[in-house]
Design a protein around this nucleic acid. Structure first.
Lengths: 216, 216
DNA sequence: CGAATTGTGTGACTATTGGTCATATTATGA
DNA sequence: TCATAATATGACCAATAGTCACACAATTCG
């Protein structure tokens, strides 16, 4: 519940409660690690976490809220990865790093990433409480700030065409999310590691070409 | 059911049965025309078509099969649109037309298009009967043939970098599907027509730049 | 014509699952 | 030790995908 995630746990009881919450999320994530993750039931999550179903609802007001927590944590992780990039390289190199870090994290944390993508769907956002909608809006702004400053530097250096932020980002965002969907939608078992690396290499090259190739 | 869709209806009874099938699909499509289309129930579809729920299942073995029929019809429509394009123009212009036709059709037939996108999800395909999986594979091959021949012409003319078909198509496909998701995921009410046109124009420019910008 | 057969329509029924809640259990503190 | 409060729980409810026994209509056959 909201308090559990926003305040520091003090007493033993509160620590236990907070730990249980993480256990629920971990249980959920371990079950979400496959393409049919949407079929996972709250009961299964409870069983995996070795608690009763009612207990899950003591921590999260709905299944959707579990998704939201996972997505938000993932977005923070992605943002943290972006901040680790050396911003003193040439801007095109920085953007390549951004793309590479994104693919790497999405593939390393498939469960998180799948849930995050799901949480962008209009029907999901619609039924989400305002509190969480705001949190997602906040995350969106952080990304805009993070990538925006890189692109701005690029524009100043004349490496990136002089266009409003949204013109520059929408193509990259669309391609990235479409590409991840394609990777997940292709039966993993019939795709060799080499093929996947090749896929990502080609997509990345295309993304950079698309970005740089816009008319200034 | 399978026969209904593959043979010509002869008797009065068969014609009625076939018409009812189309009525069910039309009812479904009219209800699918909003972002929460996945919440539409079989009962609602039956009510909209003014029949009992059981009757729906006389025509389609599952809700998923309704989706499949809608998606397959849509893909045929898209292919037909591609065939209408004048292939004698310069190849880059043909590709721009392909992209434009795709966006136009996806926006004109949002219900069909949403369902089609849904039908690419791995978990959906997994639970689909082999018959329908094969049909989707067939459609995939048709698209590959259609676009592939355009790209090949482009390579011969030196307009498109000499790369295997998959290298050329994956970026376009990823961007297009990601872009449509973004359009649908953004609350329609808070997006003006102008913004949407601008979005598509920019994305199209980016797609062409990405395609042409690959190293030969 | 009437009976039999075949195909179609139907809604009550089942199974599953997200979410609720009264009750049981446990921890804390006087 | 007992009272109070916080937490855990699974029986329960509501919604919904899918089933099925039966009703009904049309077509065929005697």
């Amino acid at each position: 519940m909201a308090n559990g995630r926003s305040m520091q746990p003090i007493t033993r009881k509160e620590r236990d409660f907070a730990r249980r919450e993480q256990e629920i999320l971990d249980a959920a994530l371990s079950l979400f690690n496959n393409p049919s993750w949407e079929q996972v039931t709250v009961d299964q999550i409870a069983k995996e976490a070795e608690i009763g179903k009612g207990t899950v609802y003591k921590h999260f007001s709905s299944k959707d809220e579990i998704y939201a927590c996972i997505a938000l944590e993932f977005h923070e992780r992605l943002l943290a990865n972006f901040k680790m990039i050396n911003h003193d390289q040439p801007v095109d190199q920085v953007m390549r790093e951004v793309i590479r870090h994104s693919f790497t994290l999405y593939l390393d944390c498939q469960a998180h990433a799948r849930v995050s993508l799901y949480c962008k769907r209009a029907d999901y956002v619609e039924r989400l409480s305002e509190v969480y909608q705001d949190k997602f809006d906040q995350v969106e702004k952080s990304f805009e700030a993070s990538i925006g400053s890189i692109l701005e530097t690029g524009i100043e250096q004349g490496v990136i065409p002089k266009r409003p932020y949204h013109h520059l980002i929408i193509g990259l965002e669309a391609t990235f999310e479409g590409a991840m969907s394609m990777i997940w939608n292709t039966d993993i078992s019939c795709r060799s590691q080499l093929e996947q690396d090749e896929f990502i290499t080609v997509i990345s090259e295309y993304m950079v070409a698309g970005l740089m190739g816009l008319r200034a």
